[in-house]
């Protein structure tokens, strides 16, 4: 046998997607309901008292941030569980003994995690249009940010899943690192609204760049330049890929 193990990649992708179907309520309904709640609270209750931000109504303003927030949390949780669970149940022996390269396996796992994130992102977008007028000025950029973020944070989640040795560790990165960064990442406000030094400090938060770039693709306004945002997403992706490459080369936490 030579070349790509396509049946192997397909088997992983299919099984991961089947896992999503088995938990369809938890996987799809939860983020949709959460988003609707955000709209009611931030868009409806608070938003009606808010001024326009950068010429965009507050309800519409938070749509890209909400989608980003979901992409991040979903990407991380899907991919981290996808690899942590086989480690936990020891079914990973099968993956390690199979004639499949690490690259192929990552491709399949991340592909499935990203598919799910993008689908949920699109569902939230569709839900949002029911509440507020949403327009997309740069659809090409919007799709690019959607895909790149889904893949990058899928990779990041995969790293968390490999690193984690307990369910607590698995939960700690998303809850203690990612959630604060997302809330402080300008999903619900423009960082221009912050006083110094918080504005400058915010520029060290990678999520600011993701939200800003994604929002720019919708309304043509962002906290930072769109190319800077793009460079950031690609940078995160390259960093995760480099770490993964090192993990597979050394067998870190996968092979004794």
């Amino acid at each position: 046998m030579s070349g790509l193990n396509l049946p192997g990649m397909w088997a992983i992708y299919r099984t991961e997607m089947a896992r999503t179907r088995r938990t369809v309520w938890q996987s799809v309904a939860t983020p949709v309901i959460t988003t609707v709640l955000y709209f009611i609270v931030f868009g409806g209750a608070i938003g009606s008292r808010m001024q326009q931000v950068g010429g965009v109504g507050y309800g519409a303003f938070i749509v890209p941030g909400l989608i980003m927030l979901t992409l991040l949390t979903q990407g991380i949780s899907n991919a981290s569980v996808a690899i942590y669970f086989p480690k936990f149940t020891r079914t990973i022996f099968e993956l390690l003994s199979a004639p499949i390269s690490s690259t192929e396996a990552v491709f399949a796992y991340i592909g499935a995690a990203a598919t799910k994130s993008v689908l949920i992102g699109l569902i939230i977008l569709a839900t949002a249009t029911l509440f507020v007028p949403v327009r997309i000025m740069h659809p090409g950029w919007m799709v690019a940010f959607l895909l790149l973020t889904a893949v990058s944070f899928g990779l990041f989640g995969f790293l968390v899943g490999i690193w984690a040795e307990s369910f607590e560790q698995l939960a700690i990165i998303p809850s203690l690192v990612v959630t604060p960064l997302t809330f402080l990442g300008g999903a619900f406000y423009s960082i221009d609204m912050l006083p110094e030094p918080w504005r400058t400090i915010s520029l060290f938060n990678p999520v600011v760049y993701l939200v800003s770039g994604f929002r720019w693709s919708f309304y043509g306004v962002g906290d930072v330049g769109v190319r800077v945002s793009l460079a950031f997403v690609v940078g995160i992706m390259v960093l995760c890929l480099a770490l993964l490459w090192w993990i597979f080369r050394t067998g870190y936490r996968l092979k004794p």
Binding site: M1, P7, W10, A11, I12, A98, P99, I100
Partner: peptide
């Protein structure tokens, strides 16, 4: 079936 696919 998954195992068969995984093994190419």
């Amino acid at each position: 079936r998954f195992s068969r696919g995984l093994f190419g």
